[in-house]
Write a protein that binds this DNA or RNA. Structure first.
Lengths: 338, 338
DNA sequence: CATGGCCGTGTAATCGATTACCTGTCCCCG
DNA sequence: CGGGGACAGGTAATCGATTACACGGCCATG
């Protein structure tokens, strides 16, 4: 593969001149033409590895997400990737698979590659690598999930308004025994959603007792199903369940159907995170939709601010309630009317 | 951030010795200890950019896929990423969004970054960049989709057996007016699936006339829905539809429901590509499942063979039919019995 | 006791770019 | 007509690693 020296020789100039032409500096028209011709004839492309070594910038961002197979994170990653690319950056996506160990592994790799900035949607709790990121001066932005003790801007959705709407929705439908399926206590975002929901319910005089708060360390469908089983086995089973993750909601739905029960007749079901598929499940699921693509874009922008040396603030974007049919009453929907 | 020179100074040795210790070459125990101590105290990590410049290897692979938001490709990407990481490689995922132009853009970027090898699940047809990849001697493996005229091993699923099973399944259920929703003619993989299916149907004496072969350049739900509309508007509408992509199947399902028709009562629906959500749609969809994770692993292995200078063969892994309820009869399934 | 080989380690070239600094030309103006 | 400034473009240092080659010390062997 041709390098800058080959181009210089063919154009009869020095490497410095070639570099200047390609980076839009001084040279005069005639020289410039010769260089560009040589570049074209040789099919020359600058070696970004060498360039990065010299300039100490890689024009690459890192994104570590909790679970690539979770459609919420997929869409987030897609949005981040598009925005990064639009701004001239490449993106390396790291998949932590909800394991803090794997997450640290990946952050390590990304730091080694000297990425210009890092976005992390943190898996689980305590990760010493995040501390190292801050110590290494690599610009960092947290995405979707905050991490206590880490001084970095966080971009996420504010669920308050949507959860208030949801509480009102459930109250209006006469559901008075709500339950929640959350990530284990200690996960900042789970705790927050739980608290906001409980507060919203309280304004309608509805309680959320501890036994109707179920959690599982497995954030996939399996975990959701197991928690739903426990909830349904309660002496006073819930008449409405909010799952704080879309995959857990799916598992919960499985358990309901496996028992021959029906949503929403026997129990209402709501998911946090709206994903396209929820419109096609049986029944279509009411969900709290995060502004996923906006979150991705905002994260990239915040990160670029930090990369360029400016401070960046945390960003909170509002989530909203999308009512379908899984609570007993939905919008008139062009679907089969059974 | 500390570099190799800092380590050398602190350990009282030369940079060469440090490099040798870290790469497991000669040095003697005592020197080695001093070096490792210095590495540890300084928190030294080798600069992979500099290393790559020198060694001309980046230990990074590229994967360009057609659409990150399509769950089939997501799972594929996830499998590829895990296997690559297991073998000590990083992965840069590029999202072509079904646009050949964007695909070429991304391939260009990846070549510029001097990735060690490239996997491409090609969007659409004719891409001159793929030719350039071959010309640049960058190891290349095609994934899921072949590209005529490109001499590279291709890893994909063989749909023959599954499509034969499907034809038998439909025949047994008395469906005699099948239709197909495919990508536009010319897309190698679409054509192939179509042909295999037609052949399989023929052995049961079932015809697949041209008017029941619908295609759309839009491979998302929108395209699927539009094609399904045309099919249902036929004077003799089909009683079974195979969509060769999971998102198109989803759009098709939408159209059926929007008309107040029912699956499978009014029309059977089958999707190529099984994704977890199909078990939760209304009704659960019968699908042809590709061995997605195996495909991802095989692609990485084939690519590494080529990177290490050995030839690599194309790989064909069998797909299989997963029967659910969208053709009118499914396995006893723990679901609501309505 | 001299010589040769081996082993551990240092010196310096190298990868391919960017860029500070210097040189040489040309032109303008006093 | 000479001096200075502007500007094009060349020379060489630099980024941080790897690695070919050289060197010196030690041991073994003739």
């Amino acid at each position: 593969m041709a390098n800058i020296k080959d181009v210089a020789e063919r154009a009869g100039v020095s490497v410095a001149t070639v570099s200047r032409v390609l980076n839009g500096r001084s040279p005069v028209a005639e020289t410039r033409e010769r260089v560009l011709a040589a570049v074209h004839e040789l099919g020359y492309r600058p070696n970004v590895v060498a360039r990065s070594l010299r300039t100490a910038r890689t024009r690459t961002l890192g994104l570590v997400i909790s679970d690539l197979r979770n459609p919420f994170f997929t869409e987030l990653a897609d949005a981040v990737e598009q925005e990064a690319r639009r701004l001239g950056y490449s993106l390396i996506i790291g998949n932590a698979g909800e394991s803090p160990q794997q997450q640290d592994d990946y952050i390590r790799t990304l730091l080694d590659r000297r990425i210009d900035g890092l976005m992390v949607s943190s898996a689980g709790t305590g990760s010493e690598m995040l501390g190292e990121v801050v110590a290494s001066d690599t610009p960092l932005v947290l995405l979707d999930r905050t991490v206590p003790g880490i001084a970095a801007p966080c971009v996420r959705a504010a669920g308050g308004a949507a959860l208030t709407d949801l509480a009102a929705h459930l109250a209006a439908l006469g559901r008075h025994r709500p339950a929640v399926i959350v990530a284990p206590a200690g996960t900042p975002i789970g705790d927050e959603r739980l608290e906001l929901f409980a507060t919203a319910l309280a304004t309608h005089g509805i309680a959320l007792p501890a036994e109707r708060i179920g959690s599982s360390p497995d954030l996939g469908p399996g975990g959701g199903r197991r928690v739903m089983r426990e909830l349904l086995d309660l002496p006073e089973p819930p008449d409405a369940v909010l799952a704080t993750d879309n995959l857990m909601a799916l598992g919960a739905l499985d358990e309901v159907r496996a028992r021959g029960l029906r949503v929403p007749d026997d129990v209402a079901l709501v998911a946090f995170d709206d994903v396209p598929w929820f419109a096609h499940t049986d029944p279509p699921l009411t969900a709290i939709a995060q502004p996923t693509r906006d979150l991705g874009r905002a994260a990239v922008h915040a990160l670029l601010e930090r990369i360029e040396g400016r401070p960046a603030d945390s960003v909170l974007l509002p989530a909203r309630l999308v009512v379908r049919r899984s609570c007993g009453e939905g919008p008139t929907h062009p679907g089969p009317s059974h």
